[in-house]
Computed example of a mutant assay.
Amino acid sequence: MNAATAQAVAASAAEAPPIHVVAAALIDADGRVLLAQRPEGKHLAGYWEFPGGKVEPGETPLQALQREVQEEIGVRIGPAEPLIRIPWRYASKSILLDVYRVAAFDGQPHSCEGQALKWVPATALDAAEMPPADHAVIHALALPPLYLITPEPDADETAFLARLDAALERGVRLVQLRAKRCDDTTLRRLASACLARVRTAGGQLLINARWDLVEELDLDGVHLTAAQLAELTERPLAARRWVAASCHDVRELALAQALGADFAVLGPVAATASHAGHAPLGWDAFAALCAAATLPVYALGGMRPDDLATAQEAGAQGIAGISGLG
């Protein structure tokens, strides 16, 4: 294909409506996810992907999912929980990928179309062997629905850690240590104390802004501020660490995606004292921004546990917050 033809194909793909595709993240009792290998002769041949296929005219996404999974791997799926929706543009086409989490199904998965199948622990999914559009799905499978942002610590570290313990007892498993006013000695001590508690609970700890401490303290990642997002030109940590970002609008979401962030926090959705300088987005605007994003997004701003279902209906991975979750 010469350069002119390649440009024409790309232009045509950009103008054509996206192909609506559904996929199932089938999860077995051992926490493994089923992958199917794309056969020779197809786009992205050899890559491993979640079973699924195109939505046909007249079908709902769930109907298409049920049909495609039965045709491809011979099982009937149970309840399917929306996981993430990803708009993705390849050089030759654009797709809209709806992925569902499926933890119950009837039958033993087997190849109905000659494709290879394998079960992989959800924690061991390898982005390098999967199509680019599926990379965000790997992250969505690994991320919990609640993301706790700690309040600024004060002089009473014992009380601060007790509040963290209480949140972990309530089921929080992803925590951001936000301690902007601590000196380095205090921050290191506090981060180590938080890490011990979070890891004991089976969770993960990110630190706000200070990616320079992540490797030193063996933290799970960094949460970048919007200001850092605007200044960075490359991802500050290796893929094995989380890189999250604070976003308030479509421009900042685009920056997070271009940087290779693993997930974003978007808000404020509702009015909140911690974001007094930002007008609230509201759920409609939040949903529109989520629909255009290619990474998992948490809703921030006035969030409480009762808002989780609303956030997920709007396309969010879950909710993030300080006072409402801590």
Rank of each mutant, 00 (worst) to 15 (best):
G282S: 02
T200Y: 09
Y90P: 06
E56C: 12
S12H: 14
L35I: 02
P82L: 13
A273F: 12
L255H: 10
P39Y: 04
W48A: 04
G171I: 01
A25K: 00
A261W: 12
D262K: 02
L96M: 14
D218N: 15
R178K: 00
G321Y: 03
L190A: 00
P305R: 01
H135W: 06
E231K: 05
P79S: 15
D28Y: 15
I207G: 01
L205D: 06
G318I: 05
C290F: 10
D28V: 13
L295M: 15
G202W: 09
T158N: 04
D126E: 02
G58Q: 08
G326Q: 03
A159W: 02
L255Y: 07
P87I: 10
T310Q: 15
S92A: 15
A80F: 10
A238G: 00
A10F: 13
L281T: 05
A124D: 15
V214I: 07
G315A: 04
A309R: 10
L190P: 00
A276H: 09
E68G: 08
A227N: 13
E81V: 15
R197E: 03
D220F: 08
V120I: 10
A314G: 07
Q317A: 11
L44V: 01
A25L: 05
L295Y: 02
G52I: 02
V75H: 13
P51M: 05
A104H: 15
A10H: 13
R304G: 14
A36W: 08
A13P: 06
L255C: 12
T186S: 01
Y298V: 05
S323H: 13
R188M: 09
L187V: 00
S274Y: 10
G277K: 15
H278I: 14
Q176S: 04
A91V: 09
Q7N: 11
R170V: 01
A299M: 09
L205E: 09
V120N: 03
C112A: 07
L44C: 00
L168W: 00
E252M: 13
L117W: 08
V269P: 06
E71S: 01
L26V: 08
A133Y: 07
R188N: 06
A238W: 06
L232Q: 04
H248P: 11
D306A: 11
C182K: 00
T272Q: 11
G78E: 12
P79C: 10
T150R: 01
R170K: 01
G301L: 08
L83G: 11
A201W: 05
A91F: 13
G221I: 05
L125G: 01
E68Y: 11
A226Q: 14
G58D: 09
A6M: 10
